[in-house]
Design a protein around this nucleic acid. Structure first.
Lengths: 225, 225
DNA sequence: AAGTGTATCAAACAATTGTTTGAATACAAG
DNA sequence: CTTGTATTCAAACAATTGTTTGATACACTT
């Protein structure tokens, strides 16, 4: 039997959820400092005092919104198998795993041609790190990054050092993250650049080929797809 | 004969210059929204009204500070010859030009192991573009980016398309810019990473080798340096 | 010496904004 | 119905902050 009386501010309360959704969208768009609790409350169709009632204060709402966006993103588009302690698509050859990694990373960042809310929140964190960034890294980024290093190690000759693999991993991460981190600059330098699913295909292909050629020194054209 | 009476707010006025210097430093550190004119005035040892007297308002001060940082950066570390309409080190082979490009780009971004003021200002612009970003791109970035594309075209087989060269240029730019754009994340994933002159050497070498292998499909070890 | 324009400054102003308050409302349990 | 708790809300509060004001000091010209 479900208790009808809300014990505390949980899923039972609709205003709580609406505030969270509005907060994710507006924080993602404008960052912490430029968004006002009044804007969020208006978007959530709630009273100005609702934020403090349900979350304590603006900073706590930001934290909750960040974690909310992180969970939702992970539900919508999980890094397959990379969560479960096993390697990312461990059964497939490393060339293929590298492509799937790049592709998954890009799909994490763009949705319907636009940066996702979580991506934009993270980009804002790059300018003004808060404890939310540390949580994101510990919960998700570090494991994903470790998976990338493993893929690259599998790709390199046996006697390669991990230090070199980390340098390669940095180059791959750079190519994957550059497009949302420097979006305003890219839009001005390459106005035709798009991030639709089709465009992400091309982008993933390019980064895959570029990286494979660098790491293995071979032409990756035949291996792709 | 120099006129002793300051005609308007120019180099003659010391407060004007102090405000500009303080503004560059503080805007670079905190971005536009989080810096207060009071902080800038305190750092510049000036009255609160000084900003409005000398620059009109906070936004105009930001614009002036951005352009000031841009000019200063270009004086300290110009993109050699790239300004003069000619190609970047056009007399040298493209492999060498690529290395010099990467090296110069990295040196633009880090000074004494820290991101430069202009770099940090530009990073903030990625989060919240203002007309200052457009000016920077038109005055400097677009030409430099065009130079990179030319280098890559020279590096590729004759029948290569410009579209492909632009994709490569994007990968090079990504590797060069990632380190300051994602600094908080990199510091957490690779805590040993440094940006001292020596570390920039290593980084430039890596990006150069990585890129050359991808573009030419050859081992760049012998060509480096 | 008087006049003129520049520069500085303390104080105040006005708008924004995160937060609190105290009353009103809804609703389930007794 | 009464009670108690959760929730909503209009209003107010307090702090921050960009900007303005009016006075004052200063340097130079006439």
């Amino acid at each position: 039997m479900t208790r009808a009386t809300p014990r505390t501010t949980e899923a039972t309360c609709d205003t709580h959820r609406r505030l969270l959704d509005a907060a994710v969208a507006i924080f993602a768009e404008r960052g912490f400092r430029r968004t006002t609790v009044r804007d969020i409350c208006e978007a959530a169709d709630a009273n100005v005092a609702a934020v403090n009632y349900h979350f304590g204060n603006k900073a706590a709402l930001y934290d909750a919104a960040f974690d909310h966006a992180r969970k939702r993103s992970n539900e919508e588009n999980p890094f397959v198998q990379m969560d479960s302690g096993r390697d990312f698509h461990a059964d497939k050859p490393p060339e293929r795993r590298l492509y799937l990694f790049i592709r998954t990373m890009l799909e994490h960042q763009f949705r319907d041609g636009e940066p996702t809310d979580l991506t934009r929140l993270m980009t804002h964190e790059m300018m003004l790190p808060t404890p939310a960034l540390d949580r994101l890294i510990e919960v998700s980024v570090r494991r994903v990054y470790g998976g990338l290093i493993q893929i690259i190690l599998d790709l390199m000759p046996q006697d390669s050092t991990e230090k070199q693999a980390r340098a390669y991993a940095m180059s791959v991460s750079a190519q994957c993250h550059f497009h949302h981190l420097a979006l305003p600059m890219i839009q001005r330098l390459e106005p035709k650049q798009r991030y639709t699913p089709k465009a992400l295909d091309d982008l993933a292909d390019h980064i895959h080929r570029f990286t494979l050629a660098a790491v293995r020194g071979i032409d990756a054209k035949e291996l792709n797809r």
